[in-house]
Write a protein that binds this DNA or RNA. Structure first.
Length: 342
RNA sequence: GCCGAGGUAGCUCAGUUGGCAGAGCACAGCCCUGAAAAGGCUGGUGUCGACAGUUCGAUUCUGUCCCUCGGCA
């Protein structure tokens, strides 16, 4: 079933979010089978080709019969970012709608999910040369110098950003440099106000302790599957540790070990710790994202039962859309594509 | 049983010549508009082993007891 064809005027999208290792990917495969649709990843790391174990991509077996999109889009030394993700994802969603299927977005990259559901402001694309220049300046004169510069051209952004937050200070300066307009004014007029779809947002969570245990187990499993060899292979191919792709969890810590910065046990400890911290940051992000229906998973809960629960939520969601469409037709209003559901 | 060392945060430990208890790690809370698994900010969570004594005031000094680790029996 898909059901999206009976809700004329709406563009429904089901989105499953949650912290790393909560169990999103496995659930996604089962859900996609039941919905006869495809999995659209919202994951800033799985876009890199050749980075499979460390990003915990679904295995070929898991992907058999269930197409996965928005994975393996670029090589590790290519730039990728939220804007590129959005440009790649929107056509996939449109295509599925055209085929009468319900798009299923699954991922833990909060910003990517947000760019789909609420848009991305019309800022200029990243300019690597200019960024490198600013980075050099930060090294020479300290990060505070960049922040002082920002205070001159965009006092609002400067007030919002901590002087040490180099990445975001550089982006704000870049926007002003390319556009002659402060980033803050662009944000203000955008405000994440777009509503291109009618989403059902499902957040998966677990008790903190259980989640942390799953993270440790998953890291151990990744190591058993050959994470060290995967990282070594990337370094041998000439990919630099400073690449954004290799600064991700797993790659950063194992590359440090391979370069002799620390011992193996220490690298594993740090990887587990950093992954726990990451999961915590994800929870902070999603907690304040509006409209998420939270589903707390019990440790002994079977995958079949979880799928049933989520399917019930999806059916109710679609039924609600049907009623809403009827009401709107009766009252003679034009149904705008993008009525808020949350 | 005797002798010695110790008991302070979740862990390892520092410290108070008697005056609101502090480091690292661990952890918790938060920010985020083309780097987002990135980047950044904030926070000490405590019956100082227990009971009694001295004192205006004891985690600190004294006594008794309990526990841990060594050594000797």
């Amino acid at each position: 079933m898909s059901g999206s064809e009976d809700v004329i005027g709406f563009k429904p999208v089901v989105v499953v979010v949650g912290p790393t290792a909560v169990g999103k990917s496995r659930l996604a495969v089962r859900l996609a089978k039941r919905l006869q649709t495809e999995v659209l990843a919202a994951d800033s790391r799985q876009v890199y080709r050749g980075m499979d174990i460390g990003t915990d991509k679904p295995t070929p077996e898991e992907r058999a019969g269930v197409p996965h999109r928005l994975i393996d889009l670029v090589d590790p030394d290519e730039t990728f970012n939220a804007g590129m993700y959005r440009r790649a994802a929107l056509p996939e969603i449109e295509r599925l709608h055209g085929e009468g299927r319900l798009p299923l977005v699954v991922g833990g990259t909060g910003l990517y999910v947000r760019t789909l559901l609420r848009g991305l402001c019309e800022g200029p694309k990243a300019d690597p040369m200019f960024r490198a220049q600013l980075e050099e300046e930060a090294r020479r004169r300290g990060p505070e110098a960049l922040h002082r510069e920002l205070t001159r051209v965009d006092p609002e952004s400067a007030a919002r950003l901590h002087p040490h937050d180099r990445v975001k200070v550089v982006r704000a300066l870049e926007v002003y440099h390319l556009l002659g307009r402060p980033l803050s004014s662009i944000h203000q007029s955008h405000g994440f106000g777009e509503r291109p779809f009618t989403p059902l947002l499902i957040g998966l969570t677990r008790e903190r302790e259980a989640l942390y245990r799953r993270i440790e187990e998953r890291v151990d499993a990744q190591l058993a599957r050959g994470l060290v060899d995967e990282v070594r292979g990337l370094l041998t191919k000439g990919y630099d540790r400073r690449l954004s792709s290799l600064k991700g969890l797993g790659y950063r810590q194992i590359a440090a070990y391979l370069d002799g910065d620390c011992g193996y046990a220490e690298a594993v400890r740090l990887l587990k710790r950093d992954t726990r911290r990451f999961a915590k940051r994800q929870l902070t992000w999603f907690r304040k994202e509006p409209g998420i229906l939270w589903l707390s998973l019990a440790e002994d809960e079977s995958e079949e039962r979880i799928v049933d629960k989520v399917m019930t939520m999806i059916e109710q969601f679609l039924a609600g859309l049907g009623r809403q469409a009827q009401v709107d037709t009766l009252s003679g209003r034009t149904v705008a594509a993008g009525v808020t559901a949350g």
